[in-house]
Write a protein that binds this DNA or RNA. Structure first.
Lengths: 199, 199, 199, 199
DNA sequence: GATGAATGAGATTTCATTCAT
DNA sequence: AATGAATGAAATCTCATTCAT
């Protein structure tokens, strides 16, 4: 029997994850009840436990999948063999650009990033991205693109923090976050950061 | 009989706040029970409700008081009439330096930061500091210290984010955060940021 | 396989309500804990919150349902087209007779009556019965069955109060409340009241 | 040393009782906190425990003192040697008339009468009044003023209930309770009741 | 897969009462 | 007498999770 296309496209797990993102974005993880997610997805709350072991696992999954995507992109950028400035531009464009694509997901990632169960999992997933950034800076330093008196690890963290705070400003509605603002932010942060780091 | 100084210094409210900081730093806000705070302070849990309306209010108070202190320092820096580079250095030194003075408080502030719905009020307290930074950049721009093509608001947010992420790295034990690391971070971030911003 | 009738008759909400009546009758509303009700019903206390929003709502429901039943009976009596004396007799028989049918419910109704702020909503339910009685007296007055110098509203309230106090006497064990006492009370009160009201 | 008049007139206990009546009338006994009473009386809540053993004892005291006053009046009426009709009129005038004198006290007595701790104490205090009424009816019956087929106990309870319900109507704002309404209620209830009871 | 009734651990909060001052 | 900080028992209610159907 041929697999039914309908059934192949039908993705309850994905629906639940999407619903969870919307609900978490709206009320925050702790204030969101399992029943809220199920209601948003249009199913009974018991069903969530067929796909996830717990409410925590839902958040962890959202984090993991998002960071895996970002880590993949970052790896590609790292191995692209372009100058640091271009690497930073590409990274910033993907990272900040995600605000225009999936604002609710970004809201969840930004608001819950420091939260307990997520923190632990975050450390593993995120470290890869940070190390990637750090290696890009170090390599550029070795190539003479970056001043020698600059600690690549610190630079990577500071750079990431600068970008994350801008995302936070958008999520909290404190910074203008329309299409043109996003591109402007990419250019500004990369220009300033690179000028500051440049040898 | 001499009045006992002890009684004059006695501050149950402050003791409870300190205890709460230690407990929140250890287990996170949500995992901390009111009873934990009381036990840490050596009092009955009911007493907490003489000084605070709720557990949430305890966290809010911690935030508010910390940000009021920072806002005061920032105001002083803003009105000091020194070049931007010096202003940034002073701000970074106070902000990052607090890690050495009150690491547990910093851990709480970093981990429970505004992302918590309970601390939405933070936005008001924090905005002052952000606006102060923004005004410092704008003033320096007007004086010709900073390149013209740089949005002061964005710069202020990015700069703050860079510093916060470093604090986060220390709190999570991902970045070395000894005395000398702190001073190095101040110098590095300020140097890079200022070089990047310089006209 | 035959459908099990048991499942069709199964009524957890009703069981909880019945259990609540027994517990409230035994210890009073305020001294009754939610756990007592659940235990009496043989379920976990959390289940109560599937059917009712709060402990208060349980009491309100008991009141509302009881008064809705009485209001229905009273409406029927009002529209029966019989003389006032017969109307009063029927009302008294149903009202006082309920003591023999559901003494625990009566105990709850009498002891927690409107005086409770939690049951302020009662006023709406009860008013209908009072107005019904009042209309019966007024109609009888118009027919010349009742003396003209008698305020129907006052008469309705006084009559109801007389009956309620007798119920109270039975609930508190201060008045003999066996089968024959109930019928005697109906006759006595109706005879005296009607003789007093008669034109 | 002569007793100071000021101090002799000064009556903290009485002030606290008055305050408690006002607070209980406003929010009900259970919703009233000891601190509310103290605040209403303008003292610290700890002071209440110098004059009363507990919050319950405050309510009990209010009940006892009120019922002792009523019992005294009732005794006087019983031994006045006047016809039943006049006795009932005097009782009703005192009982219903108290609504105009101390409405808040009446509100408390009416609303809390069936409540747990009060019920128990009520039984003792109230029984005297009920028995007094019952004896008046029985004596009138022996004198031939009242029909023979009427149980004096039932009559006393029913009569008391009629009056209490009118008080309740006033307290709940469901019956008009101005000066003239009170006198009218006295006349109506006594006339109807006596006509109904008359031989 | 899907449902939702049922469970029960657990946490906040209230507030009467005590008592040192 | 008077105060009010301190205590701690007690109770409601929430909600993640389970599981029979």
């Amino acid at each position: 029997m041929l697999p039914r296309l309908a059934s192949a496209t039908f993705d309850r797990r994905g629906e639940l994850l999407d619903a969870a993102v919307r609900v978490f974005a709206r009320k925050g993880f702790h204030a969101s009840r399992v029943g809220d997610i199920a209601e948003e997805a249009g199913v009974a709350h018991g069903l969530l436990y067929h796909y996830f072991r717990s409410k925590d696992e839902v958040l962890e999954t959202i984090f993991r999948e998002a960071w895996e995507r970002l880590a993949g992109e970052t790896d590609r950028i790292e191995s692209a063999g372009v100058p640091l400035r271009e690497q930073l531009r590409r990274f910033a464009r993907i990272y900040l650009g995600s605000w225009l694509v999936t604002p609710e997901l970004i809201a969840v990632l930004v608001r819950e990033i420091a939260r307990s169960p997520a923190v632990d999992s975050r450390i593993d997933e995120v470290r890869g991205v940070f190390l990637s950034l750090q290696r890009m800076v170090a390599a550029a330093q070795a190539r003479g693109e970056v001043r020698a008196d600059c600690n690549p690890q610190l630079a990577a963290w500071a750079l990431y923090g600068a970008l994350e705070e801008i995302l936070t400003g958008w999520v909290l509605g404190q910074l203008p976050g329309e299409d043109e603002d996003v591109e402007r932010a990419v250019v500004t942060v990369v220009d300033v950061a690179f000028a500051g780091l440049a040898a």
